[in-house]
Design a protein around this nucleic acid. Structure first.
Length: 457
RNA sequence: GAGGGCAUAGCUCAGUUGGUUAGAGCGACAGUUUGUGGCACUGUAGGUCGUGGGUUCGAAACCCAUUGCUCUCCCCA
């Protein structure tokens, strides 16, 4: 067989031991909080039927779905059919004759598919969390990959704003545990709808939200330019500018927006919902929860309150986001199941924690003790003692080859194993062993039972 | 989809207007040292200079093509 050059598909990564441990630390923290709030785990397949995914993420999104080529395309008896199907592909259309499956693009649509398939069996309100990789055929760049993890928690079958309150508290709890100082930004699609209504451009809502979402990136002038290009009138743009200029404390912002939307029903609704969440009792996170009327979020299925998480003290895009959607399962023939969900961006959270040096030392992991291999009989005794320590839940390993000290010490060094147990011919004869602390260099001779009573850290 | 940058040892990189046998540091391996590591010293291995073509007496260097990686924009997480 020809030798293959070792390489990785673009936008994917291997994770070495210390990176995996740090990532697991993040995953476990998030997962434990999800469980603490009564969410149940769900896993769905890496691949879905293509038709499940197509048309759910907009025109751009469809292009970014990884499609899986069907097997058996070289079947002679289907030659003509397959050629015809391929003509459709060349014309830019998808066909099940060539590809009928695709890798999942996010966790929300598969979840909606799952709820639609199982709604008869589920207990509503249904709360699930899901931590799995997703794939996008996007051009990779900084902080953006073709394979990455999403950590989602969603509640479906409930209109109550108490869910939003819970999700905000999940955000606050997780980032508090991780030690990341964050600003939880909150807005409401209803307020954005009201803005569109006020500016006489109801059908322009998406254009408006896309444009104002870029405010802090490109500045007010560029936003106005873009709005102009989208065909908005001067006075409409002026209203939007007035809206964007609202600032101050949460209360000041609310007062200002109320004046602006005093006659727009949907706007008042949106404001009331935000006030409800902000004023919910016993919530200890108000300091970091702030209204941001420029927050829009890309996904168009959001209909109510929306969230986005920004890490303080570091230059990084959002590390989480979410919001309320009215009718996601309607896409799969099961209408009237409202929901609200949030997502954590683990890859960016990792980058933030690395930059701010927030990972605790304790997650280093690995073996605590290396048993030296100094001969056949010696290693049999070492093995016996090692198994007894493992039974006490102490991680250890034995050097598999009989070799000189130098090599075994260096192995322990490289793997940052803090202790070595040395059993050579002398210890074998005297029925004891040497325990050496590799950091301090101190060592002591111990009876076997005394070794088992030691604590290692 | 649009536009930049990069490609030399396992890793990070040097390599002079084109000139003999392409270097350094780190790492690996071995030895000094067969019962005590991190340090030091000595030595060894490791290269189709991304690939293909061209210019030239001569190409790692110049030209063309190609592949891969990377970054920015669009968009998104």
């Amino acid at each position: 067989m020809a030798k293959t050059k070792a390489s990785l598909p673009q936008g994917t990564r291997d994770f070495s031991a210390d990176v995996v441990r740090k990532r697991n630390y993040i995953f476990n923290t998030i997962k434990n909080v999800f469980e603490l709030y009564g969410f149940a785990p769900l896993e769905t397949p890496a691949m879905e039927n293509l038709e499940t995914l197509m048309g759910k993420y907009g025109e751009e999104g469809d292009k970014l779905i990884f499609k899986i080529l069907n097997n058996g395309l070289d079947n002679i008896s289907k030659h003509e059919q397959i050629k015809n199907d391929f003509e459709k592909i060349l014309a830019g259309k998808n066909t099940t004759g060539i590809t009928e499956r695709a890798l999942r693009y996010d966790l929300t649509i598969p979840f909606a598919r799952y709820v639609a398939m199982n709604y008869g069996q589920l207990t509503f309100p249904f709360k699930r969390y899901q931590i799995q990789p997703v794939w996008r055929a996007d051009r990779p760049q900084r902080g953006r990959y073709r394979e990455f993890y999403q950590c989602d928690a969603d509640v479906v079958g409930s209109n109550s704003l108490l869910n939003e309150v819970e999700l905000v508290n999940i955000y606050a709890t997780v980032f508090n545990k991780l030690g990341i100082d964050v600003e939880i930004k909150i807005n409401n699609r209803k307020i954005l709808a009201a803005l569109a209504e006020l500016c006489g451009g109801n059908d322009k809502m998406i254009d408006i939200t896309v444009a104002i979402d870029k405010l802090d990136k490109i500045g007010i002038e560029k936003v106005k330019e873009e709005l102009q290009q989208k065909g908005l009138q001067e006075n409409q743009i002026a209203s939007i500018e007035q809206y964007l200029n609202i600032n101050g404390t949460n209360n000041e912002k609310l007062n200002a927006i109320k004046k602006l939307f005093h006659s727009v029903e949907i706007g008042k609704q949106g404001i009331n919902e935000i006030e409800y969440v902000l004023n919910y009792p016993l919530s200890n996170i108000h300091s970091s929860l702030s209204i941001d009327f420029t927050l829009a979020r890309g996904l168009n299925y959001y209909t109510g309150i929306i969230f986005e998480i920004k890490a303080k003290n570091v230059q990084m895009g959002s590390i989480g986001g979410g919001g309320r959607y009215n009718d996601l399962t309607g896409l799969f023939g099961v209408p009237n199941i409202p929901g609200v969900g949030i997502s954590f961006g683990v890859d960016r959270i990792y980058d933030v924690m690395e930059e701010l040096k927030l990972f605790p030392e304790a997650i280093a992991g690995g073996a605590k003790i290396l048993f030296f291999n100094l001969g056949e009989e010696e290693s049999k005794l070492a093995f016996t003692l090692m198994q007894q320590l493992r039974n006490k839940n102490i991680a250890c390993e034995i050097y598999p080859e009989q070799t000189k000290f130098d090599k075994q010490f260096k192995y322990a060094d490289k793997k940052q194993i803090p202790y070595a147990v040395i059993i050579g011919s002398k210890e074998l004869a005297e029925n004891n062993c040497v325990l050496k602390n590799l950091q301090s260099g101190e060592q002591q001779t111990l009876l076997h039972n005394d070794l088992l009573l030691q604590t290692f850290h």
